[in-house]
């Protein structure tokens, strides 16, 4: 190949310098603003799910799912609130406590236990007739594509504490 010396013309040089100076100005101006805008992305979201007393004694949990409602403390930027949470809680055949999130995995409606008379022993979502078996697994052929989420749980002094809802893989 030829060894042409690519001379930079005066105009090109000025263009490069101008672009550089413009870039410096734009960066100096925008850097703090962009950093501020993306701050929520960079803040660690690994807030360990705090366990909250849901006001239900373990001995009161039966094999029939019952709905429990409780409140959590939530700090949303400058706004503090106590939004409600709810769960369907029961004991399975082995005596393990199961706490299912009532949020339908299809489009986020709220499911209820035996919510439809024609589907006994199942969770039923009234929005699009989604159905789940007792252990929260979606029934094939109905709209939902994943089982209901389960809450992290622990038992202290015979009282049930629930944490974050963990979603499960599709079945």
């Amino acid at each position: 190949m030829s060894e042409d010396k690519q001379q930079v013309s005066r105009r090109q040089f000025l263009n490069y310098t101008l672009t550089g100076v413009g870039g410096f100005m734009a960066a100096g101006m925008l850097a703090p603003m962009l950093r501020m805008a993306i701050d929520p992305v960079l803040q660690s979201t690994s807030s360990e799910g705090e366990f909250v007393n849901v006001g239900l004694a373990v001995e009161d949990i039966t094999t029939t799912p019952q709905r429990v409602d409780w409140q959590i403390e939530q700090v949303d930027g400058w706004y503090q609130s106590k939004p409600g949470r709810s769960a369907w809680v029961y004991k399975d055949d082995n005596g393990n406590i199961i706490a299912l999130s009532p949020v339908c995995t299809h489009l986020g409606c709220v499911v209820s236990w035996e919510g439809n008379d024609s589907h006994p022993n199942e969770f039923f979502c009234p929005c699009h007739d989604g159905r789940y078996t007792k252990d929260g697994v979606n029934i094939p052929g109905t709209p939902p594509l994943a089982p209901l989420a389960t809450y992290e749980q622990k038992v202290e002094n015979g009282i049930l504490y629930l944490g974050k809802a963990i979603s499960r893989k599709g079945a």
């Binding site: 310098t17 100076v21 100005m25 100096g28």
Partner: peptide, 21 residues
């Protein structure tokens, strides 16, 4: 205007920006 004049204008702007920040 481009690039001769604007380069000087922006150099002044850069100095100003540094002072402002």
């Amino acid at each position: 205007f481009w690039p001769n004049f604007l380069l000087k204008e922006w150099l002044a702007g850069s100095v100003f920006l540094v002072g402002f920040m």
